[in-house]
Amino acid sequence: MTDETAAPPAPRADARSEAFALAIAVAGWIVPGLGHALLKMWGRALACFLTVGLLVFFGAGMRGNVFTSSGNDAFDTLGYLADLGAGSFYFVARSLESNGPDVSRADGDYGTRFLAAAGVLNLLAALHAYEAARGRKA
């Protein structure tokens, strides 16, 4: 006789922790470092905030291209998605760059890369915070 047992229902605690991890990831995306701060990982929180902030500050100061949703081609769209990864700092970059981008010089071109790197780095940090909240990595 086989000992058949019904699969246990998914525990509510798991669903709650998954929702918590998602909230951590979203918080980390909106404000760089906030996800880690909510997990009391203060060093990582500060590092994320400062590194993403520095990249945005220098990227905008070098008059890099802050892409908007009204891109002309796929590269503009990709750039917009990368820039948007910086969360609220995307709008900081736009407000800092009141004179508009100037990619006719190498500085502006580098600035564009700095801004995109800030966004991608922040997404990586948010993913790290999500994994840490799930207990997979710390």
Partner: peptide, 28 residues
């Protein structure tokens, strides 16, 4: 308004980028 406009050389930009990204990777 943008109060500061940076004019970095190629080497300075590479150094700054490498340093900032290395710090982030190290902490993460």
């Amino acid at each position: 308004s943008a109060a500061v406009v940076f004019g970095l050389s190629h080497l300075q930009a590479m150094l700054l980028f490498a340093l900032v990204i290395s710090i982030a990777f190290g902490f993460l």
